[in-house]
C-alpha cells in the first residue's frame, strides 16, 4: 500500500472510531436519562459508570491502536510497523484476559508514551529518521506534542485516577495538547514568531 493511501485510510479509520465514541456518548445520555428518574438512582450510579466505561474502553483501545499505527509510522517501515502493532495488540489482549481491560489499556498506553516521547525527542532534534505526512518542523513538533499529550491524558484517566500526582499529570497532558494543537494548526504563524524573535 502506498504511503499516501495508508495515511488516508488511517485517517478514515480514526474518524470512524471517533464517530463510534460519539455513539457511545449518545447511548450514555439516553441511558442516564432512563436511570436518573428511578428512585434508586444513587445506588445505580456506580454500576452506570462501570457499564459506560466498559462500552468506551474497546473503542479507546481501537483509537490507541490507530494512534499506535500512526505514531510509530514516523519511526518504522510499514511492514515492521504492522508486525509490531500486531505484537502490541496481542500483548494487550493477553494482559486483558489474564488481568482486566484496564491493565491491558495501561500497557498499551505505557508503550505509546514511550514511543511518542522518542518521536518527540527525535522531531525536536530534527532527526531524518522520523517520517511525517505533513512537512514543516513546527507541524511535526505540534503533531508529536499533541499525540503525546493525548496518550498521557488517557493513561492518567485510566490508571492514575487515585494517584496523588493525578492532577499534576493532567495539567502536563493538557499543556502538551494545547501547545501541540496550536503548533499543528498555526505552523506558519509560529514559524514567523520564531524567526522574528531569533
Amino acid at each position: 500500500m502506498k504511503s499516501k493511501n495508508y495515511d488516508y485510510y488511517l485517517i478514515i479509520l480514526t474518524s470512524l472510531i471517533l464517530l463510534a465514541i460519539g455513539l457511545v456518548c449518545i447511548y450514555g445520555i439516553i441511558y442516564y436519562n432512563f436511570l436518573a428518574v428511578k428512585p434508586e438512582w444513587s445506588s445505580l450510579y456506580a454500576e452506570y459508570i462501570e457499564i459506560m466505561n466498559s462500552y468506551l474502553y474497546p473503542f479507546l483501545v481501537l483509537l490507541l491502536i490507530s494512534l499506535g499505527l500512526c505514531i510509530p509510522k514516523r519511526l518504522l517501515g510499514q511492514d515492521i510497523l504492522i508486525k509490531s502493532s500486531a505484537l502490541i495488540l496481542g500483548a494487550t489482549l493477553v494482559l486483558t484476559v489474564i488481568f482486566n481491560l484496564e491493565a491491558g489499556l495501561g500497557f498499551i498506553l505505557a508503550v505509546m508514551i514511550g514511543i511518542q516521547s522518542m518521536v518527540l525527542i527525535m522531531t525536536f532534534r530534527k532527526s531524518r529518521a522520523v517520517r511525517f505526512e505533513k512537512h514543516g518542523y513546527v507541524v511535526r513538533l505540534g503533531s508529536s506534542l499533541l499525540h503525546l499529550g493525548l496518550v498521557v491524558l488517557i493513561f492518567n484517566f485510566v490508571t492514575l485516577r487515585e494517584s496523588p500526582s493525578h492532577i499534576l499529570i493532567f495539567w502536563t497532558g493538557t499543556l502538551l495538547i494545547t501547545a501541540g494543537t496550536i503548533f499543528a494548526l498555526y505552523p506558519d504563524r509560529i514559524t514567523r514568531l520564531w524567526y522574528t524573535e531569533q
Binding site: 471517533l18 464517530l19 465514541i21 460519539g22 456518548c25 449518545i26
Partner: peptide
Amino acid sequence: SGSILMWA
C-alpha cells in the same frame, strides 16, 4: 457525554 460527542 454530549461535550465528548461534540469534541469527537
